[in-house]
């Protein structure tokens, strides 16, 4: 090693390593899919009836226990992290080495801007509702659309930062998908389900394809 190394390349490759095997995509898919499904479930009349039945049969505590379903998504994401670490240590990263990513994988300015996108979407829809241009349901649909835009922007920014073209594609498709939610005549709960499942499916597909490629090509030679 006589010449200076390509520091920029090393920095990018090390940051990208965490996302190179697609397991992060699968983790995000699980998180978003379950969040959408749980939001839909807790807003369903039949779920309320089940909780009422539990309350009558086993006491109020049991009904409150039913609300613990909201913790399913974070628990699944946490479980996926544990599984991801195990798969990487035993299989994927055994030859190429282990890297613990920086605490803030997403740059702060990207996080700030994605929050601004979410808040701006909500504020604009509320303003439009006050002006009488849109109905109440539009504001509720905007909640999921703006969440999708915010997430899509984060993916595009990360794809650009880490040189991962699949995240730019995912962000583009996901952003368009989130926009289409505004035109669906569905309830808040149904939109949540559509949002979670469509983003979940998109990310799971991306994760599985990337994982298959990463198994075929060892990480060392990437």
């Amino acid at each position: 090693m006589t010449n200076l190394p390509d520091v920029k390349r090393i920095l990018t490759e090390t940051r990208r390593y965490e996302f190179a095997d697609g397991l992060r995509d699968i983790q995000m898919a699980i998180l978003l899919g379950i969040t959408g499904a749980v939001t839909w479930l807790v807003l369903q009349p039949f779920w309320m009836n089940i909780l009422t039945d539990w309350g009558q049969k086993f006491g109020r505590g049991a009904a409150w226990m039913g609300l613990l379903v909201v913790f399913v998504a974070p628990l699944a994401a946490w479980g996926m992290v544990a599984l991801m670490n195990l798969i990487r240590k035993r299989w994927l990263w055994r030859e190429s080495g282990i890297v613990k990513p920086a605490r803030w994988v997403v740059p702060r300015r990207v996080t700030v801007l994605s929050s601004v996108i979410l808040i701006a979407g909500l504020v604009l829809s509320i303003a439009a509702r006050r002006a009488g241009w849109v109905e109440d349901a539009f504001v509720l649909r905007m909640f999921w659309a703006a969440t999708g835009w915010s997430f899509a922007y984060t993916l595009v920014a990360m794809g650009h930062e880490l040189g991962l073209s699949r995240y730019i594609w995912l962000g583009g498709i996901g952003g368009a998908m989130s926009t289409s939610l505004l035109f669906l005549q569905l309830t808040f709960a149904q939109i949540a389900l559509v949002f979670g499942l469509s983003w979940g499916l998109l990310l799971a597909l991306s994760g599985i394809i990337t994982l298959r490629q990463s198994v075929r090509i060892p990480q060392v030679s990437k």
Binding site: L4, P5, L11, T14, Y17, G97, V99, K100
Partner: peptide, 20 residues
């Protein structure tokens, strides 16, 4: 050069093992 490469890797993550 070698130490620059090592420092570049380690500054881009929280930790890395010897193999990486």
């Amino acid at each position: 050069p070698s130490r620059l490469a090592i420092m570049a890797v380690l500054s881009a993550c929280e930790s890395a093992d010897f193999t990486y």
